Simulated assay, not measured.
Amino acid sequence: LVIATPCPLLIAIPVAIIGSISLSAKRGIIIKNPSVLEQIDDCTVMILDKTGTLTYGRPRLTEIKYFNGFSREDALKYAASLEHYSRHPLAGAIIEAAQKARLAFSNVNEISEPAGQGLKGTVNGHEVMITSRRKLIAQGQQEALRGIPESGGLECLVTVDGKIAALLRFHDEPRQEGKFFIDHLNPRHNFKKVMIVSGDRESEVKYLAEQVGISEIHAGKSPEEKVEIVREETKHAKTIYLGDGINDAPALATATVGIAFGQNSDITSEAAGAVVMESFLGKVDELMHIGRRMRAIALQSAVGGMAVSVLGMIAAALGFLPPVAGAITQEIIDVFAVLNALRAAVPPKDLTDFEERS
């Protein structure tokens, strides 16, 4: 009975978890929910946001088309004044363009940004809205959009007092490491399905998907629709959702493992189980390897320690191990189990198979 204690099981696993959380923090990954480390290696479906995740999230304003008697300066001034209060990835590009044009910001009142609906506000007494083509079509403005050609890139529309004032077009570069990250998910981590779920237009999402090698896309999705897609996928397999925006927060909370990418939003970080502080896909790979390594070390310590304890029990039952020697042996087993578990906190030589080839 002296040697038949489950100490390796009770002590080694928590030590391995704490060690892996510590290692993750050193690598710029904050673990908010320890179950992330346990479950991440079992996930076989990767769901990714587009803007800011597979792209750098630093779009540049490349073209402005203006309509209904509005000038380029007027349209840009209205848009920049309103976007000054938004954290959307396109906001920075609009503000930067206005600053380069030396345009002064106007006073804005009654600002609102309903999820997936665009940005609204009153600028100098005019009702201004920045939204997508799809939302305007849903509002019955097909006729007003008839003469405005579509493109394959990022775009948004600015309306002033219900009239379309401008079409703004942007360009956002895909991440350099994106294609290799996607390509290595199946052979190195056994992912069976990889998909993009985005609120952007289908042409934009399809263009990026072709560049990084993803065949399944879901474009033009609201936060609620993202949640439904994630929930449906999670019914059939464990899922990882990787996103960086406020609109991704509900989906992050729904997935088996939610990973917030970067430090763009406190809301996103709060909803996720883990937060990758550096916006580099290699860090996501590191997190997956840390989780895999933690499970291996925890099992080594717990199962190995319990196996030795069982052998000790057999020896004691046969009379080869007196009580005092049994107690000492159990303490030695515990020490070795904990020392092995502490390896989880020590960075291995190769923590990832990603950076060396990115």
Score class of each variant (00 low, 15 high):
residue 3 I to K: 10
residue 175 R to E: 00
residue 263 Q to V: 14
residue 191 F to Y: 11
residue 206 K to R: 14
residue 60 R to S: 12
residue 226 K to A: 07
residue 111 I to M: 10
residue 156 C to I: 13
residue 303 V to S: 10
residue 100 K to T: 04
residue 110 E to M: 12
residue 294 M to K: 01
residue 104 A to S: 15
residue 139 Q to M: 13
residue 31 I to T: 09
residue 35 S to Y: 11
residue 243 G to N: 02
residue 269 S to R: 11
residue 94 I to A: 05
residue 155 E to R: 06
residue 132 S to E: 11
residue 84 H to S: 14
residue 229 I to W: 01
residue 297 I to R: 01
residue 21 I to G: 00
residue 158 V to T: 04
residue 230 V to N: 02
residue 52 G to Y: 02
residue 86 S to D: 03
residue 160 V to S: 08
residue 301 S to H: 03
residue 69 G to F: 07
residue 87 R to A: 14
residue 262 G to Q: 05
residue 48 L to V: 12
residue 230 V to I: 00
residue 238 K to C: 06
residue 357 R to T: 13
residue 304 G to E: 05
residue 160 V to C: 07
residue 156 C to W: 08
residue 197 V to G: 04
residue 94 I to D: 06
residue 219 A to D: 08
residue 111 I to K: 06
residue 352 T to P: 08
residue 27 R to A: 12
residue 305 G to P: 04
residue 232 E to Q: 14
residue 174 P to M: 02
residue 175 R to N: 06
residue 231 R to Y: 14
residue 59 P to G: 09
residue 154 L to A: 06
residue 232 E to H: 10
residue 129 M to Q: 14
residue 97 A to T: 00
residue 97 A to R: 00
residue 84 H to V: 11
residue 312 G to L: 15
residue 214 I to G: 07
residue 286 E to I: 10
residue 341 A to I: 02
residue 336 F to M: 09
residue 354 F to M: 07
residue 100 K to V: 14
residue 351 L to R: 05
residue 48 L to D: 01
residue 142 Q to V: 14
residue 280 F to W: 15
residue 51 T to E: 08
residue 358 S to H: 14
residue 49 D to H: 09
residue 210 E to T: 10
residue 258 G to I: 09
residue 232 E to N: 13
residue 79 A to Q: 07
residue 54 L to Q: 03
residue 54 L to I: 07
residue 252 L to N: 12
residue 139 Q to R: 14
residue 300 Q to C: 07
residue 216 E to P: 05
residue 78 Y to N: 00
residue 112 S to W: 08
residue 219 A to W: 01
residue 275 V to H: 01
residue 88 H to K: 01
residue 88 H to C: 01
residue 19 G to N: 00
residue 343 R to T: 01
residue 279 S to R: 06
residue 292 R to P: 00
residue 306 M to V: 15
residue 283 K to I: 07
residue 320 F to Q: 11
residue 13 I to T: 11
residue 237 A to H: 11
residue 125 G to I: 04
residue 51 T to F: 10
residue 217 I to R: 11
residue 43 C to L: 01
residue 342 L to N: 01
residue 39 Q to T: 10
residue 243 G to L: 06
residue 126 H to E: 15
residue 153 G to V: 04
residue 131 T to P: 11
residue 123 V to D: 03
residue 206 K to T: 14
residue 302 A to Y: 07
residue 28 G to V: 08
residue 350 D to F: 15
residue 287 L to S: 05
residue 154 L to W: 00
residue 290 I to F: 04
residue 14 P to S: 03
residue 44 T to Y: 06
residue 161 D to T: 08
residue 301 S to D: 05
residue 178 G to T: 01
residue 73 E to C: 01
residue 171 H to S: 12
residue 296 A to D: 12
residue 277 M to S: 15
residue 161 D to A: 09
residue 105 F to I: 09
residue 283 K to M: 12
residue 35 S to P: 07
residue 167 L to T: 10
residue 228 E to D: 12
residue 82 L to E: 04
residue 265 S to N: 11
residue 182 I to L: 04
residue 214 I to S: 06
residue 296 A to C: 14
residue 282 G to R: 03
residue 130 I to P: 02
residue 179 K to H: 08
residue 236 H to M: 15
residue 217 I to V: 12
residue 234 T to D: 08
residue 61 L to K: 01
residue 72 R to F: 12
